[in-house]
Design a binder for these strands. Sequence first.
DNA 1: GTCTATAGAGTGATAGAC
DNA 2: GTCTATCACTCTATAGAC
Lengths: 218, 218
Amino acid sequence: MPLDISSHTGEKPAGRIRKQNEKLILTAAEKEFAACGFKGASMREIAARAKLPKANIHYYFKNKLGLYLAVLSDIIDLWDGTLSNLTTDDDAAQSLAQYLRKKIEFSRDHPLASRIFASEVISGGPNLGSYFTEGYEAWFRSRTAVFEQWQQQGKLDPNIIPSHLIFLLWSSTQHYADFALQASSALGKETLDEEDYEQAITTLTHIILKGCGIVLED
Amino acid sequence: MPLDISSHTGEKPAGRIRKQNEKLILTAAEKEFAACGFKGASMREIAARAKLPKANIHYYFKNKLGLYLAVLSDIIDLWDGTLSNLTTDDDAAQSLAQYLRKKIEFSRDHPLASRIFASEVISGGPNLGSYFTEGYEAWFRSRTAVFEQWQQQGKLDPNIIPSHLIFLLWSSTQHYADFALQASSALGKETLDEEDYEQAITTLTHIILKGCGIVLED
DNA sequence: GTCTATAGAGTGATAGAC
DNA sequence: GTCTATCACTCTATAGAC
């Protein structure tokens, strides 16, 4: 049971209950949206998963889209702060290796988040609003710029097209969340275990760093 | 208009109409299932896309699941015959390069198929029946065996774990179908063009072959 | 083979008692 | 803040006229 810190933060008990229930609902919604997509998800099922009456969901969240966007924005917040952290100053080898590890650990620890985002993009992003239109290209260019500088400094194979390298970093790591069912089935397991994730990190890091003409000293 | 060959094949005109309508419905269903997932898709919308009355869909296909499975089995048929074609006899460099090209061209030419399969796996594969359970592990092992033989013959870096290399081949190529929206947005385009796909093939081939310790002579 | 009309279950959302 | 009861709508699927 978590420690009650409401008397220290000045929150009303009511606010505490609100946060608890919102958390319950968000967790339930995450599972349902990951399993069924936005259109396929049902508020009835979310309520059942949260073990709350259906009307309570509508008390805390305006409607289905509002709940979905709340889940999705949490996910996008998590997304930021990984690739955005890459800067030119960093050591190319260390940076790439760390990025691959972080993303695979993210796939292991937040598979539902990754799947909801993937479902949304696959279905054409009808609920992403202006996420991909406003400033996305500019942000992406600031990311490719880091790789271009590394290329100019001779730290990265100049034959590689940075944008496609980024797509490779994304796809190869997210795969362990989105296609975990296929991967575990292929390996003859119920779920991927710690060793599988470590082997994924090792193999991906090896192939991509070597393929990019980078040597990681240990 | 396609040439009428029914008098040569012995098909009844009725059979011809059946095939035409089934094709219309399957094409419409493919778009709808890719955009909404299985649960989110609606037979009403599929009928509208096919420009047929809703009841006609049920005349040609038993129910929603039957139609979905028809679409999905077409997709899985397409899937086979790519990785399955890899054999030990082949030249490792040529084989991998060809595989990457084939899969990216597949992502370009059949993005909807890739997305439907991805949606199904992401949502936990509730409609895949025994696809992942019966013989899938054995089939996958026969695929990793090819890479292991290459390793024993010194054609492939022994540090690489074959199963994770296969996951990398899958993920990096399918990404161009499933995440086409994100990729095109990042590049500031409406859709990916021929040059993008060529650059994807070039970059992926370069990184993966070099990363695997394989040199592709041209 | 085609298509209208509709049954019957499930959907998101809300009013109103507690 | 909670939750039952219900509304209006959409869903899949089918019966039955043409």
